[in-house]
Design a protein around this nucleic acid. Structure first.
Lengths: 152, 152
DNA sequence: GCTTATAATCTACAGGGGCTTATCATCTGT
DNA sequence: ACAGATGATAAGCCCCTGTAGATTATAAGC
């Protein structure tokens, strides 16, 4: 294995830069990063509880309340009591929310594609495939990777 | 281009997990993340000013003072006035500092290699090559990538 | 019915980190 | 020699975030 910087030492500044790249696009859409994260998380489908949402985007459950308040006030999400358990709130995107998310995401994608275009043609696909594979791993398997198994 | 999550949406949780992975190793060596960053930055060779060091690790120049104080007190770095410009402090690793950095880095590497081992054999090399290419770009080219040019 | 547990919410608090200003020493240009 | 710039440092402020308790509504088990 050839010598290389620590993974985190490469990832951290890169991530910062990627977030800086998103910032102006999100600002145009009046979205904070947390708010955008919520819209992305709800893309997959409605969620049953706010706590689940908070965990899925790595946020504190008390912290996203204000974010949800704002999104709801702007008609971007719906937050209705679960009829089966009225303590919980069912969260889902409205059509308007979906539209705003698509618009923001499109702007972000455009920049990202320009960035990816700078990678050597031959590495690009493998890079994205590996990245998706790592991103799909549960966090604890990254923090403390099991010794060998590739195919359980 | 196939559909995929936003780059930042994949990078951010991955980076967090990688940092969590480093935390216990660094704790064993009594190093904060900033302190480790300093040791890594000085690996390349001595630096002429603290401000340059701060910038190179993405820290605030006023914030690393305490970190440097601690590292110096522990004999891990040297901080001597530049004879050519006595306002500046020449920063360099001591032998002990180099030893500690190597030890911490070795622990971190071990985990990282286990993680990389989980990637499909064929993608691993391209992944690392692409990652290094991106990490080598100046931040503003990531934030706002130029339209085309790969070879200026 | 009563007790215990859970979801959401609010408030208060503490820590980390960035940013700003002021100070001191030193250098550079005139 | 003097004025203005620069490096290091210290102190204070502010923001973001995470944590902990208290509160309310609701559920579920006994």
């Amino acid at each position: 294995m050839t010598d290389r910087p620590d993974l985190a030492a490469m990832f951290l500044p890169l991530t910062r830069a990627l977030i800086d790249a998103e910032r102006p696009v999100l600002a145009e859409h009046d979205l904070s990063m947390w708010a955008y994260g919520v819209l992305l998380a709800l893309e997959e489908g409605p969620l049953r509880t706010q706590a689940a949402l908070a965990q899925s985007i790595g946020a504190d459950k008390t912290r996203i309340i204000g974010v949800l308040d704002d999104l709801q006030r702007r008609g971007l999400i719906e937050r209705v009591p679960d009829p089966a358990d009225r303590r919980a709130r069912l969260l889902s995107l409205t059509a308007e929310g979906r539209r705003l998310r698509d618009s923001a995401q499109a702007g972000i994608r455009r920049r990202e594609e320009r960035l990816l275009a700078r990678l050597p043609e031959g590495d690009r696909e493998g890079f994205l495939r590996a990245l998706r594979a790592l991103a799909a791993l549960p966090p604890h398997e990254i923090t403390d990777p099991p010794p060998e198994v590739t195919d359980p």
